[in-house]
Design a protein around this nucleic acid. Structure first.
Lengths: 194, 194
DNA sequence: CCGAGTCTGTACCAATCGGTCAACACTTTT
DNA sequence: AAAAGTGTTGACCGATTGGTACAGACTCGG
């Protein structure tokens, strides 16, 4: 086997993901992308095929990473605590120096999913899986007596996803971060009314 | 005054808005834009200045139209009824044949507001005003005894905005429309618990 | 130590990008 | 009817777009 690749494929893909994440797909030119990745055109095209393929791949990588993190977090403590930790994590992400980037999945939902079936498929499964983890947590909380059993777990999970989207939209549009704080609290208020 | 313009400036701007709305700013090329508007390059540049200026102007036009509609709706009936009508209108919009376009303001929030101060300003005021109308309705409902006075009107208005964003994201990403229905109901459940 | 095979760098490509400009069409004023 | 002024048109522009081709660099098996 002659001459290994001079760069780590996944690691460099992650750098591409960073660029796409903060600037969007169309607004990221090939030259900007290559600069962010630190490789040359030839290497890029022989490895990832095209800008579009690279984008989808980096989106999948992002979705997988995020979902893994969430599932890991959901295994560490009780249902309500996990949900609180989930919203705190998103809040922290939103107020962090790089937080104005929002969520790559949600950004893609609005920019590409509209008329790109492959992007749409990735976005839909990512949202569905996230929703499902939320639903399981709510259900577990209800069985443990932590959460009101009268709530529709599935609908409440969707409502929570909606709050996540709201937080991401508010923060990416440069809004007052106080709004993001309030939304995180409102999301928790769905299951743990004051 | 010699030779009037051969097209209505606002009307043609609205056509540009339609194109930007469904395809986004970057993905709408000048040729596609001109085709949608039905005018020629020269007329476009002499009237609107640039693609970017035309976009911002069409965005303002969109925001104004939408807000006017909402305020008119809010004047027609009681607070809770107005809120219900608001979410029904958004639901109807989402399930309509052209509904997959989402909301132009929210689309812009994610695509441009991130690093375009002017777009950001338009988006922020549009969201703030919409939020304010919601807040006033909630407050009016509380004073009329229709809505629980223990609710924080401002925070609840933000939560409702969040549901709107959720509905728009779900529908633009081609999701099951049942989810949009559920979100509309969940939003109303904030103030009118079953 | 010499090809075979793989990776990298860059010159190059047609197409398209957003934008300009000058010639021409038209209406009003004088 | 001609001057003045505005509107429209489409050819044209350089720059940049995403993508290709190929020469050269490198590492291996024989």
């Amino acid at each position: 086997m002659p001459w290994e690749k001079q760069f780590d494929v996944d690691e460099t893909l992650a750098k591409a993901g960073q660029a796409f994440w903060s600037q969007g797909y169309e607004a990221t030119s090939m030259s900007a992308l290559l600069a962010a990745m630190g490789i040359q055109k030839g290497s890029f095209y022989s490895t990832y095929g095209s800008k579009h393929e690279a984008y989808l791949r980096s989106l999948e990588q992002y979705a997988k990473t995020r979902l893994d993190e969430f599932e890991q977090l959901a295994r560490r403590s009780g249902a309500v605590d996990s949900l609180r930790a989930f919203f705190e994590a998103i809040y922290e992400d939103c107020v962090s120096p790089t937080g104005h980037r929002g969520c790559m999945i949600i950004n893609c939902a609005l920019e590409l999913a509209h008329d790109d079936p492959k992007a749409q498929a990735i976005v839909k499964t990512a949202i569905a899986r996230n929703e499902e983890v939320l639903r399981r947590l709510i259900q577990a909380g209800q069985e443990a007596g932590e959460i009101n059993r009268a709530l529709d777990a599935s609908a409440t999970a969707k409502a929570m996803m909606s709050f996540v989207m709201g937080m991401r939209v508010y923060s990416r549009s440069g809004s007052d971060l106080e709004a993001v704080r309030i939304l995180a609290d409102q999301a928790m208020a769905l299951i743990a009314p004051t």
